[in-house]
Structures are given as structure tokens and as C-alpha cells.
């Protein structure tokens, strides 16, 4: 009996501290929420003020341009198949830029990722500096490198390819090294014990373990790179983005052709997204099944 009466005040004390903590947490959350809302609204107002046209003035015009494009495309719908065919080579160029840069970037990223994974790296002291290199490659937007290279090499697909490939090295290098960290070291040790050199250890001991994840990440990168390559075309690096800018030039818009390009770009992105999503699912799913079998 005495024990219970002694415990009651203690329980009350715990209860009060708990409630106080909850109140403090709620207050902190409220303050954070208000701060966030203020930032969001303030940011919107600032952005609105610094924009050439205001949000509320432009809002009712937002459908004008799509309506123009669709209207013009509708009027000349019979020309659309011809346009789709006409811009197919540019689309292929855009896809080639994306594919080549993903391929080159993934291969370089693979090597980089092995060099920056602790435990696998052949040169220990180089891990830190090489990671910084990857950070910088990742931080530079593709457009920066592309614009500089366009100045040096002239317009065309090569500057875009180099720019996207460099960014891909940074992005995939990091993701691959995260995958490598989870790889089992047993095969590597086994290979080392029979005298395999570093290349052989990596090629036969690590890569087979991580290849499905690598492929999955590389496919995701390919999706991203298609978009990037279209955008870089818009600033003069060839491909379908370049054609889009030409058809869209203010004043003499050829909106029916622009519509065809929009359509091509949209379909490409959706189709590649779907295919790569299925493929990635199978890759990771297959890997899971492989693990279960072990």
C-alpha cells in the first residue's frame, strides 16, 4: 500500500515532464512550420516580383501557347507524320548523346567507384581526393561544361556528350561505390589467396556481385541523360532540342513542327521510362532471387 502511494507522485512527475516535452516539441514544430510557410510565401512573392510577367497576369494566358501549338498542329495534322519522320534523325542523335555519355560515364564511374571504395581501393591515400573529384564532377551542372565546350569545339553533339558523361561519372561513381561497400569481400580474399592481381580481383570478385545494381543505376541515369541531352540541344548542342529551339524562335514559330517535336520527345521519355522501369525491376528482382538461392 505504502509502495503505491509513494509511486503516484513519481508517475505524476513523469507525466508532467512528458506533457511538457510534448508541448515543447509541438511548439518547435509549430515555429518550424510557420517559418517554412513564411519562407514559401515570401519566396513566391519575391519570385513573382522578380519575374518579367506576374503570376496572376500570366495565369489566364497559360493555356494560350499550348492551344496555339495544338491548334496549328490540328489544322495541319496531315503533315504530322512527315514531321515526325523529319525529326527522327535529330531524336536519334539526342538518344545517341544520352547513350554514349551514359556508357562512357558508367565505365569511367565503375573504375572511379572501385578507386574510392575503402577496402577495395588499391591506393588508400587517393580515396579522399578522388571522392572530392567526384563531388565536383557531380556539382557542376552539365550546361556549364557544355557551354564552354561549345565555345571551344563549336556546336554539335560532342560537347553535350562530354558534358553529360562527366556529370555521369560523378553521379554513378558515387552510387556504384555505395553498392561496392555492400559487396562481400570473401571472393576478393579468395582470389587474392590464389595470387590474382587487383584488376582480376575486381573483375572476377566484385563486378559479378554488383553488376545487376550497376546496370539498374545506369539505366536510371540513361533516363535522366535523355532529358539532359534534349535540354543541352536547346542551348546549341545538336539533337532534337536544337530543332525545338529553331521551330520555337520567337516571331516565326512553326508550331506544327514544334508539336511534332514535343510529341516525339514525350513519347521517347515515356517509352524509355517504362522499359527501363521494367528492366530495373527485373534486375533487382533477379538479384533478390539469386540471394534467396544462396
Amino acid at each position: 500500500m505504502a509502495e503505491i502511494t509513494g509511486a503516484a507522485p513519481r508517475v505524476r512527475g513523469i507525466r508532467e515532464t512528458y506533457l511538457a516535452e510534448v508541448r515543447a516539441k509541438r511548439l518547435a514544430n509549430l515555429v518550424l512550420g510557420v517559418l517554412f510557410a513564411v519562407l514559401l510565401v515570401g519566396g513566391f512573392v519575391t519570385a513573382d516580383a522578380r519575374n518579367a510577367g506576374g503570376f496572376w497576369d500570366g495565369l489566364h494566358n497559360i493555356l494560350d501557347f499550348p492551344a496555339d501549338v495544338i491548334g496549328e498542329a490540328w489544322e495541319r495534322a496531315h503533315l504530322l507524320p512527315g514531321y515526325l519522320l523529319k525529326y527522327l534523325p535529330s531524336l536519334i542523335e539526342t538518344l545517341n548523346i544520352a547513350a554514349a555519355s551514359t556508357l562512357i560515364g558508367a565505365m569511367a564511374g565503375l573504375v572511379m567507384s572501385l578507386l574510392v571504395t575503402r577496402g577495395l581501393a588499391p591506393v588508400g591515400w587517393a580515396v579522399g581526393p578522388l571522392r572530392r573529384v567526384l563531388d565536383i564532377l557531380r556539382a557542376v551542372p552539365e550546361i556549364v561544361i557544355a557551354l564552354v565546350l561549345i565555345y571551344l569545339l563549336g556546336g554539335g553533339p560532342v560537347p553535350a556528350m562530354i558534358a553529360i558523361a562527366l556529370h555521369t561519372v560523378g553521379a554513378l561513381g558515387k552510387l556504384f561505390s555505395e553498392v561496392n561497400e555492400n559487396a562481400s569481400l570473401k571472393p576478393v580474399e579468395g582470389l587474392e589467396s590464389v595470387g590474382a592481381n587487383w584488376t582480376q580481383r575486381m573483375w572476377l570478385g566484385v563486378i559479378p556481385q554488383v553488376a545487376p545494381n550497376y546496370l539498374s543505376y545506369a539505366l536510371l541515369r540513361f533516363e535522366i541523360n535523355i532529358r539532359a541531352s534534349a535540354i543541352l540541344g536547346f542551348v546549341g548542342a545538336g539533337g532534337i532540342g536544337y530543332d525545338l529551339r529553331n521551330t520555337m524562335s520567337w516571331g516565326q514559330g512553326k508550331f506544327d513542327e514544334a508539336a511534332a517535336i514535343f510529341l516525339l520527345l514525350f513519347l521517347t521519355i515515356v517509352v524509355v521510362d517504362q522499359i527501363s522501369s521494367i528492366a530495373r525491376d527485373r534486375l533487382t528482382h533477379g538479384a533478390r532471387r539469386g540471394e534467396a538461392m544462396l
Binding site: F44, D64, F266, I269
Partner: peptide, 28 residues
């Protein structure tokens, strides 16, 4: 969702800049 993602940021940028003009709001 598929439509919003599939119409790439590039196309959204072009469409929006026609309505709102260049500036940070269009980009946002």
C-alpha cells in the same frame, strides 16, 4: 504523374515562359 514527368522540364519551361515571361517564377 506520368504526364507531368513525361513532359520534360524543358517543355514545361518553354510553355510557362510564354505565359509568365522569363524569370525565377517561371523556373520555380
Amino acid at each position: 504523374f506520368d504526364f507531368l514527368r513525361g513532359v520534360d522540364g524543358l517543355i514545361w519551361t518553354i510553355v510557362l515562359s510564354r505565359a509568365f515571361g522569363p524569370g525565377p517564377l517561371t523556373g520555380s
